[in-house]
């Protein structure tokens, strides 16, 4: 998975192009800075509850989101900040939700694990492992039934491949030929346990694909270009009636499973080795290889830092959520009445 040196021909035939590359870089950086800020806010006790960060996994979220069209749908897990931000949800909305403020994406009713923004095509973050794979199938079924061309993209971790819903959804998506893309982010650990200790095959998603008649696709999730290209292929397949895809992205989370996890179970040197393959680092080098100036890159860095700083200040200044919404939206009539 070493980077290939770019030739002059590569530059000319660059299929991704400068505009998209800058978008890929900025998207990864927004995730990196916002996730780091979420972590800092935890330490200041301004974020309560739990949180599952995607530090180190930005390439997957950016690659898939930047290849989407408006109207495509994302289905995320409890580790969903990255995928939510990648669809363009403002940092302020995400941090506000984590902090339980009135400016939060769901005004504090969902929290870190349930980020949702229908407006941006983020159809929910699901905290029960595997639950959203069948749900993504259902959204894809609707597209198929109505002749609509959007793709449902479902993100999940390596641990999800060992729960029943994963297998039910894969089989279901194939037999109904649904326009859904399943994206396994293999960060090597299911919570605290190495995925290889608890899985019958080496590639938890890739090696299961053949059971559902799908090709084995395992890619470098830390290279946003690789992810982006694979995403485009899968979306095209889905949109053209070619059915579902299952893509395993190899990546690594730099922090523990959740806020409570110092990740002491990792062998010595593993984190450092993966940090050499940090997706942001890889991408900065990629931009330089393609002749994008240091100034253009540092402008993006400064812009993103300012965005995250301003979002943080707005959230700190925002009032906590009003108790007025405590019992709203249980039922479609807006309330929670279950009797007359």
């Amino acid at each position: 998975m070493r980077m290939q040196a770019r030739t002059e021909t590569d530059l000319i035939n660059d299929d991704i192009g400068e505009t998209k590359r800058l978008e890929l870089y900025k998207t990864q950086l927004v995730i990196r800075d916002a996730e780091q800020r979420a972590h800092d806010l935890f330490l200041q006790n301004l974020v309560k509850g739990t949180s599952h960060l995607s530090l180190g996994q930005e390439g997957v979220a950016a690659g898939f989101a930047c290849a989407m069209k408006h109207g495509d749908l994302s289905f995320c897990t409890y580790r969903g900040h990255a995928h939510t931000l990648a669809r363009g949800v403002p940092v302020e909305k995400v941090l506000g939700e984590l902090m339980g403020r009135d400016n939060g994406l769901m005004r504090g009713k969902g929290g870190s694990m349930h980020l949702t923004s229908e407006l941006h095509g983020v159809m929910g973050s699901y905290a029960i492992i595997g639950a959203h794979l069948p749900i993504a199938c259902g959204a894809a079924w609707r597209a198929q039934y109505k002749g609509q061309k959007d793709v449902s993209v479902c993100f999940f971790g390596d641990g999800t491949t060992n729960i029943g819903a994963f297998h039910e959804a894969l089989n279901f998506a194939v037999i109904w030929n649904l326009p859904v893309v399943f994206v396994c982010e293999n960060n090597l650990y299911m919570e605290y346990t190495p995925i290889s200790d608890v899985t019958a095959v080496q590639n938890p998603a890739g090696d299961r694909a053949s059971a559902y008649g799908l090709p084995k696709i395992v890619i470098d999730g830390n290279d946003a270009d690789v992810v982006y290209r694979e995403a485009l292929k899968a979306y095209d397949r889905a949109r053209s009636g070619g059915g579902p895809s299952l893509i395993e992205c190899l990546t690594y989370r730099h922090s523990g499973h959740s806020r409570a996890d110092p990740a002491k179970y990792r062998p010595e040197g593993e984190l450092e080795r993966w940090k050499q393959r940090d997706p942001i680092k890889i991408y900065r080098e990629r931009l330089a290889q393609f002749g994008i100036s240091e100034k253009a890159i540092s402008d993006i860095d400064a812009h993103v830092k300012r965005e995250v700083d301003e979002a943080t200040e707005k959230c700190k200044a925002a009032p906590p959520t009003s108790l007025d919404i405590l019992t709203t939206d249980v039922y479609a009539d807006g309330g929670y009445a279950w009797r007359n």
Partner: peptide
């Protein structure tokens, strides 16, 4: 799950 995804998106 499929019923839910379909319901969320218009069926």
């Amino acid at each position: 799950g499929a019923a839910m995804g379909a319901a969320m998106t218009g069926l």
